[in-house]
Design a protein around this nucleic acid. Structure first.
Length: 500
RNA sequence: GGCCCGGUGGUCAAGCGGCUAAGACACCGCCCUUUCACGGCGGUAACACGGGUUCGAUUCCCGUCCGGGUCACCA
C-alpha cells in the first residue's frame, strides 16, 4: 500500500498553534455523570482562565452504546451549566469534524502510517470474527500473530477483517502529569494495544491521541481512571514523533453508598444521581456547578476561604495547582447547602418563577396566590422538590389530632387553644382589611388585651388553619393566603375538634 | 493478584519543616421569633501506624495498613 505523505503534511498544517486549547470529549451515553460534569468544568476553566479555546468533541466510536438524542443532552447540560464551547459539532471550527465517527478515515490512515513505519501491525483474529455475531469479544489466548507485510496485504485484499495493533517496545515509560507528577511504568505491563478495531473504527485511546494532536489540544484534562493508560499515550505520541500535551488527571468523584456505607466511584449504574437527576430533584445548575467546582479543587491565596463563586470568579481563580490528588466524596448535604443558598440568592420574582410549578403540584386552587406562597418558601427549602409536601395543606386541610394544639413553648393545651380560637374568631370575623399588617395587628392587639404571649394566641390559629405542626410561614401569613372565609371555616372545625 | 495513585475531624478542605492545625457542611447548644426555617453567637470533632532524616515533623524518605483506580476490538 502506498502512503500519501502529502495528505499527512496537509493535516499537520491545519493544526492551530499558540494559545491554550482544551477539549471536553464525552461519549454520548444519554446523561451527564457528576464526575464528567466536573471534568468538563475544569477543562473549560483551564481554557478560559488562560484566554484559550474550549472545544467539544463527541466520542462515539462505540457503536454498541449509541443512544439516541444523547448529543442533545450533552449540549443542553453544558449550556445550562454555562460551559460554552468555541468549536464543536454544531458550531464547527478549523479542525473538524468534531464527531469521531466522521473522522474514521483519519484514524485509519494514521494507523496505517504506523504500520508502514514498522511500529504497528495487522492481525487477523478468527476468534474475534466468530465472536462478532454475539457481540462478545473475549480476549483470545493467542489472539493474533504478526504477519509479514505481504501476508497482511493479501488478507486485507481478501476481505478478512482485521485489527491494527501497536508494537510496545521493551523498557519503561515515564510520563508527566500536572497534578500527579512523574509516573513511570514498565512497558511489560502494557499489551500491544489495538489501534483500529475490526469495525474500522479506532479505539478510544488511539482516537484520542490522533484527535488531540490534530486539534492542537495543549491540555488533556480527564478523569484519573485514565491514569494507568496514560503511558500508552506517550508511546503513541513517541511513535508518531508528536509533541506530548500537558496531562491533567482529576481524581474520581466518590460517593458514600447509603446502603452499605462503602465508598465507591459515583456511577449512574449504581443509582447515583446524574446531573439530570439533580435538576429533576430541584437543584439549580449554578449550585451544582459551584459545588462540583469545589469537589476536588480549592482556591488559594486570599480567597482560600471563599466558597461561593460566579462562573467569572471561577475563571479568574482556577488554577491546576489547586486540583487535589485524592478522590473526594460527593456529599448531598453540602450540595443541599449550596442549593439552599442559591435559592435564597434569587430575587423573589425569580424564585417564584422557579417555585410555581412545584407549588402547583399540590396547590391546585388558583385562588391561593402562588407568589405569596413562594415568598414563604424561599428561606425554607433546600431543593425545589421539597415544596409540594410543604404546601399541601392549602388545598386540603389534613386529618389531624387534637394533640397538635398542645405546645409547651407556646404554653398551649386543648383548653387554652379552644379559648384562644373562641376569642380570635370574632376579631378576625370583624376585620375588613385582610392584609398581612391588618391581621397581625389585630392578633397582637388581642393577645395584649388577653395578657397572653403572642405565641399562645398564634399557635392554635396556625394549627387550625393548617392542620400541621410545621408550616412554611406563621399563622398570619397562612390565614392571609387562605382568605377570610376559609380561615374562619377552618377555625370552626378546630373548635369542634377541641370541644370533643 | 500485578501495576499505578492516594491517606488532615463523619464529609469537602487550608497547610507546602517551627501554627493554640484555618474555614465550610453535618451535628449539638444559646439568641432572635407567630411553628419551622433564615440570620447571629458558641461548642464537640482530625494530621492512619511504625521507623528514619532533622535542633524540630501533619509537612521530606522507607515500610505497614487502609482506600481507590486499572489490567477490553468500552470509553
Amino acid at each position: 500500500m502506498a502512503i500519501d505523505m502529502k495528505w499527512f503534511d496537509e493535516m499537520e498544517g491545519r493544526i492551530p498553534r499558540g494559545g491554550v486549547r482544551t477539549r471536553f470529549a464525552p461519549s454520548p451515553t444519554g446523561y451527564m455523570h457528576v464526575g464528567n460534569l466536573r471534568t468538563a468544568l475544569y477543562t473549560y476553566l483551564i481554557a478560559r482562565h488562560a484566554g484559550g479555546r474550549f472545544i467539544l468533541r463527541i466520542e462515539d466510536t462505540d457503536q454498541g452504546r449509541l443512544v439516541e438524542d444523547a448529543v442533545d443532552v450533552i449540549y443542553a447540560t453544558m449550556r445550562r451549566c454555562g460551559l460554552t464551547w468555541d468549536e464543536g459539532p454544531d458550531v464547527g471550527g478549523p479542525v473538524g469534524s468534531y464527531i469521531q465517527t466522521e473522522r474514521r478515515d483519519f484514524y485509519k490512515k494514521y494507523a496505517e502510517l504506523l504500520v508502514e513505519k514498522g511500529l504497528a501491525y495487522y492481525c487477523f483474529c478468527d476468534k474475534a470474527e466468530s465472536a462478532e455475531d454475539s457481540g462478545n469479544f473475549e480476549r483470545a489466548e493467542d489472539p493474533c500473530r504478526a504477519l509479514s507485510k505481504e501476508e497482511a496485504e493479501a488478507n486485507v485484499a481478501a476481505g478478512r477483517s482485521y485489527v491494527i495493533r501497536q508494537r510496545i517496545p521493551e523498557g519503561t515509560t515515564t510520563f508527566h502529569d500536572a497534578v500527579y507528577g512523574d509516573i513511570t511504568v514498565d512497558n511489560a505491563e502494557l499489551d500491544d494495544q489495538i489501534l483500529l478495531k475490526s469495525d474500522g473504527l479506532p479505539t478510544y485511546n488511539f482516537a484520542n491521541v490522533v484527535d488531540d494532536h490534530l486539534m492542537g489540544i495543549t491540555h488533556v484534562v480527564r478523569g484519573a481512571e485514565y491514569l494507568s493508560s496514560a503511558p500508552k499515550y506517550n508511546l503513541l505520541y513517541e511513535a508518531f514523533g508528536w509533541e506530548i500535551p500537558t496531562y491533567v488527571h482529576c481524581s474520581s468523584v466518590m460517593i458514600n453508598d447509603p446502603e452499605t456505607g462503602a465508598v465507591r466511584k459515583m456511577s449512574k449504574r449504581h443509582g447515583d444521581p446524574s446531573y439530570e437527576d439533580l435538576v429533576a430533584q430541584g437543584y439549580l445548575s449554578h449550585a451544582v456547578v459551584n459545588y462540583v467546582a469545589l469537589l476536588g479543587w480549592a482556591p488559594h491565596g486570599d480567597i482560600a476561604e471563599q466558597e461561593f463563586f460566579t462562573m467569572d470568579e471561577l475563571i479568574a481563580a482556577f488554577d491546576i495547582a489547586g486540583i487535589s490528588k485524592s478522590p473526594s466524596a460527593f456529599d448531598m448535604e453540602k450540595l443541599n447547602y449550596f442549593n439552599a443558598n442559591y435559592l435564597r440568592g434569587l430575587s423573589p420574582e425569580e424564585f417564584a418563577r422557579e417555585a410555581e410549578p412545584w407549588i402547583r403540584r399540590t396547590v391546585k386552587n388558583e385562588a391561593y396566590d402562588a407568589a405569596a406562597i413562594a415568598a414563604l418558601l424561599q428561606a425554607r427549602c433546600e431543593r425545589l422538590s421539597d415544596i409540594p409536601e410543604k404546601v399541601d395543606f392549602f388545598d386540603a386541610l389534613p386529618e389531624y389530632g387534637a394533640d397538635l394544639y398542645t405546645n409547651k413553648k407556646s404554653k398551649t393545651n386543648s383548653e387554652v387553644s379552644l379559648e384562644m380560637l373562641k376569642q380570635t374568631a370574632p376579631v378576625l370575623s370583624g376585620l375588613d382589611d385582610w392584609s398581612q399588617d391588618s391581621i397581625h395587628g389585630a392578633l397582637v392587639g388581642l393577645a395584649e388585651k388577653l395578657g397572653v404571649k403572642n405565641a399562645t394566641l398564634m399557635w392554635p390559629l396556625r394549627i387550625a388553619a393548617a392542620g400541621k405542626a410545621v408550616t412554611p410561614g406563621g399563622a398570619v401569613e397562612i390565614c392571609r393566603i387562605l382568605g377570610k372565609d376559609e380561615t374562619l371555616r377552618r377555625m370552626e372545625l378546630g373548635m369542634e375538634k377541641l370541644n370533643g
